[in-house]
């Protein structure tokens, strides 16, 4: 019960800050309206924010923030790669479908890895099997596919963020 109240308080606080940032009005009427809206949204959806791994919420968030700069750099590299292939007169592409296995199981970790794959060098997540942690990936050429199949840097980074070992079940 106590846990639930603290979760609701955090959701309410975040939503309130979000309201104030977006509205930009600080008079009584708008703050009260924002408070009421935040309360309704909290009551309806606070479970979404804390659906899994409650105790680790802040540490996981922090590790996720640390992961973002590396991911941004990968996105820049990915774009340069795609632009080079697209503008090259002969278009050096050889699309293929590959399957990769990951130790990840939790929904949020799978979503993060799926979106990371889509944004980075020449690969798009086609489908995900959440029970086996298996990703079907469409790759634009052989090198980006090898980055996922052989190097596995991204899988390891995401697994580090969510602290999921290979035999986590």
């Amino acid at each position: 019960m106590k846990k639930r109240i603290s979760e609701m308080a955090i959701s309410f606080g975040l939503l309130g800050i979000f309201w104030i940032l977006l509205s930009g009005y600080f008079d009584g009427f708008h703050l009260v309206a924002g408070g009421i809206c935040s309360m309704i949204v909290t009551a309806l959806s606070y479970r979404l924010l804390f659906s899994e791994r409650r105790s680790q919420f802040f540490r996981t968030s922090w590790r996720l923030i640390c992961y973002v700069p590396w991911e941004l750099w990968q996105i820049v590299l990915a774009n340069i790669d795609v632009i080079r292939r697209v503008l090259h007169p002969r278009m050096p592409i050889a699309p293929c479908l590959i399957e990769i296995e990951t130790p990840l199981r939790s929904e949020f970790a799978l979503v993060t890895l799926g979106n990371s794959i889509t944004l980075t060098p020449g690969t798009i997540t086609v489908s995900v099997d959440p029970e086996k942690g298996r990703f079907l990936v469409h790759a634009l050429a052989k090198e980006p596919a090898d980055a996922l199949l052989v190097d596995q840097t991204m899988q390891r980074k995401v697994a580090g963020v969510f602290q999921e070992a290979r035999n986590d079940g």
Binding site: N79, V86, M91, P95, T118, L119, I124, H138
Partner: peptide
């Protein structure tokens, strides 16, 4: 320029 549905989405999704 790209030849099919999937490869076109590579271009739009990232760029």
């Amino acid at each position: 320029r790209l030849p099919d549905f999937y490869t076109r989405l590579h271009a739009t999704g990232k760029c």
